[in-house]
Design a protein around this nucleic acid. Structure first.
Length: 445
DNA sequence: CCGTGTCTCTC
DNA sequence: CAAGAGAGACACGGG
């Protein structure tokens, strides 16, 4: 699609950016002009100091592309194709017929009609066969395990192996497209391919990461990611004392939350995992319903976890209440640097819609402010690498990825860590972990 | 061909 | 049912 522009003193402003900042669809140049002059000072400052400069950074990243080891990927393609073929035959032998394993409907017929397994959950168009359900059915029939494995392999094969192979140019690179204006929260998105969702767990997923390499013969891929950036933003905005002091002293927040929730010092892996999910839940705008699903416990127990959380972190509770109150009166929320999200859902007749609006209000402030911090960091880092052989190749929400010659390794890791950690000043420190290696897989620690 | 639903991957 | 933000493959049904 052609990008539309609004011209102001020789500067071409993409209309998408005006739409993004004003949360409004713009259909004519006249409307763009009105919208621009109706932006408040904070939003104009965002446009000129953040979004327009970011456009240049993203355009540079798109031109630079990402180097792929084509030979490695071709080997992987063959291995996966024969693996898929093997599983398909095994399943056919087991159940006596060939079915399309990509079809949820055919899977459902096999499991619930033919094999008579219990229906644990229904969707809009029939019984569910999603991963959660299948895991519960695992002990009841040996074919379940194979279906799950088929899905794991075929997902990666069709989403990554084929698209990446067909996207490679003569120099062995792929060129994802980044968008600044696609999300409600200010995050950046990537398409064709979506390199923000490259698998990380599982053996086949790791093999995909292993095909992304440096463009320099002896070069490195370097990855720098913020540690707990959303919790740090939450601590900063809410000013909650326990959360802030935990992050100040670099404690493991999930363990600390677990210690407080369960009221003891020694925390098991399971207990820490529960606390971790509660911490995430807060960032997502928690509900007892949602948390109970995540944890596999009843709603009352989930509610008890939430209550316990708010007793330990009362500042967070106040932040959430204040946010929803303000959102209801103004109809919108804003991030630390002033990006707005309008929330008409808050005034819906539908209860779920209203609750959704409340969760989105909380989440947008946290996720959106974190997105702004990374943008500031990208701008600073970009200005320092623009005359060098170091390339910024990806942004994955809390992570920046670089491709660099061997001799720039020390300079880059030191510079990136400093610029990211000092990008903005919060009430709690920002922490960045840096890893590097010959491939993107190695660069993830 | 296109929209909708399901599923699965990321942060 | 339904925890936030996304991309995208695939099946399927309507046109």
């Amino acid at each position: 699609m052609m990008e539309r522009y609004f011209k102001l003193n020789q500067v071409k402003i993409p209309i998408s950016l005006l739409e993004f900042l004003s949360n409004k669809k713009i259909s004519s140049l006249k409307e763009a002009e009105n919208t621009y002059f109706n932006l408040d000072e904070e939003q104009k400052s965002l446009l000129w100091n953040m979004e327009l400069p970011m456009l240049e950074v993203l355009e540079a990243m798109q031109r630079v592309g990402v180097q792929v080891d084509r030979k490695k990927l071709l080997i992987l393609e063959e291995e996966m194709a024969s693996e898929l073929d093997r599983i398909e035959k095994e399943i056919a032998e087991m159940v006596g017929e060939r079915i399309n394993l990509n079809s949820p409907r055919q899977i459902a017929f096999l499991l619930y009609e033919k094999l008579g397994l219990p229906i644990l959950r229904r969707g809009k168009s029939g019984p569910s066969t999603n991963e959660m359900v299948l895991r519960k059915l695992l002990p009841m029939h040996p074919v379940i395990e194979k279906i799950l494995y088929y899905r794991e392999v075929s997902k990666i094969f069709s989403s990554y192996v084929n698209p990446i192979l067909s996207g490679i140019d003569e120099s062995g690179k792929i060129y994802p497209t980044f968008s600044l204006t696609n999300t409600q929260t200010g995050r950046i998105t990537a398409v064709e391919p979506n390199l923000q969702t490259i698998p990380i767990r599982g053996k086949w997923g790791r093999r995909i990461r292993d095909v992304f390499v440096s463009r320099y013969p002896d070069g490195y891929i370097l990855s720098a990611d913020y540690s707990q950036i959303e919790l740090r933003v939450l601590a900063h905005i809410s000013q909650d004392r326990s959360l802030s002091s935990a992050l100040l002293s670099n404690k493991d927040v999930h363990t600390l939350t677990a210690q407080e929730i369960f009221g003891k010092k020694e925390i098991s892996e399971v207990e820490r995992d529960i606390a971790k999910r509660v911490n995430f839940g807060i960032v997502y705008g928690i509900s007892a319903q949602g948390l109970s699903e995540q944890l596999g416990v009843d709603k009352a127990s989930a509610q008890r976890f939430i209550d316990a959380y708010f007793r330990i972190y009362p500042g967070v509770k106040e932040f959430i209440d204040r946010t929803i109150r303000e959102a209801r009166t103004r109809g919108w929320v804003k991030t630390l640097w002033g990006h707005r999200r309008y929330l008409p859902e808050l005034f819906s007749k539908n209860k779920f819609q209203r609750m959704f609006g409340e969760r989105a209000a909380v989440n947008t402030i946290i996720q959106g402010s974190a997105a702004e911090i990374i943008k500031w960091a990208m701008l600073k880092v970009f200005s320092r690498i623009r005359e060098r052989d170091v390339f910024m190749i990806l942004q994955v929400h809390d992570e920046l990825v670089f491709d660099l010659p061997k001799e720039d390794l020390e300079w880059t890791q030191e510079m990136v860590k400093r610029e990211m950690e000092q990008a903005v000043k919060l009430n709690v420190p920002l922490k960045v972990d840096v890893h590097w290696g010959k491939t993107y897989l190695e660069a993830k620690g």
